[in-house]
Structure formats: C-alpha cells, structure tokens
C-alpha cells in the first residue's frame, strides 16, 4: 500500500478523535471507559517495546540498551539522555561481542 494512502488513513482516524472530545463537553463517560482511555498509552507503548527487544535477532544487545536506557530515563526523567545512553550501551554491547 502506498505511503501517501497510509498517511491519509492515519490522519482520517486521528482527527475525528480530537474533534469528538472537543465537541462533547457535556458528556460524562462511564468510569470504566475513562480509565480504559487513560491506560491505552501504557499498554500500547509496552506492546511496542517488549517484542521489539525480545523478538529482535540482536536481542542480547537490545536488552542491554533497554535496561541502561530505561534506568537512565527513570533516574533522570530526561528522554534525550535516555535514548543516547541506551544507544551508547547498545554499541558497548556490540563492540564487546554480545
């Protein structure tokens, strides 16, 4: 499928969600669905990270990168530092022959 079409479809599912919320100020969602929407980033982000680390052909290096990067992010709360530190750890593991 062409890149332009995929991008168009992604836009078509994103814009309505934004407009819908802004247009429904008086609506009260049930607590379950409010909580559900709040948990979606947690579950989706985890579902993107774990298979890409454990399922990768170079998984030992990626585990080193994810643990180092994750620890840095947790302690420093700094995204750029975490990504760069994780990438450095990946290369350290790769050069060490892991």
């Amino acid at each position: 499928m062409s890149g332009w079409l995929v991008i168009g479809l992604m836009w078509a599912v994103t814009y309505p969600a934004r407009l819908l919320g802004l247009s429904l100020g008086r609506l009260n969602l049930p607590p379950f669905w409010l909580a559900f929407l709040r948990f979606v980033p947690v579950s989706v982000f985890a579902a993107l990270v774990v298979p890409d680390v454990l399922g990768s052909p170079e998984w030992p290096r990626r585990i080193v990168a994810a643990l180092s990067g994750g620890l840095l992010m947790w302690r420093s709360r700094n995204l750029a530092l975490g990504i760069l530190g994780g990438f450095a750890a990946y290369w350290a593991a790769r050069l060490a022959g892991l």
Binding site: F39, P41, V42, S43, V44, F45, A46, A47, L48, V49, V50, D52, V53, R61, R62, A65, A66, G69, G70, M73, W74, R77, L79, G82, I83, G86, F87, Y90
Partner: peptide
C-alpha cells in the same frame, strides 16, 4: 534500537503505581 528506546522513554514516566506496572508487563 532507537525505536524501542524512544517508546521506553514515553512509557517510563507513566509507570506511577503497581497497576500501571502490571498493565505494562502483561501487555
């Protein structure tokens, strides 16, 4: 490897209690 690292960076600040941690591990 930048891809999982970037999402880890978004995920880590969201892990504020035991329920969020459990949801992340299970998912």
């Amino acid at each position: 490897v930048i891809f999982p690292l970037a999402f880890l960076g978004l995920l880590v600040p969201l892990l504020v209690d035991r329920v969020t941690l459990l949801v992340a591990v299970v998912s």
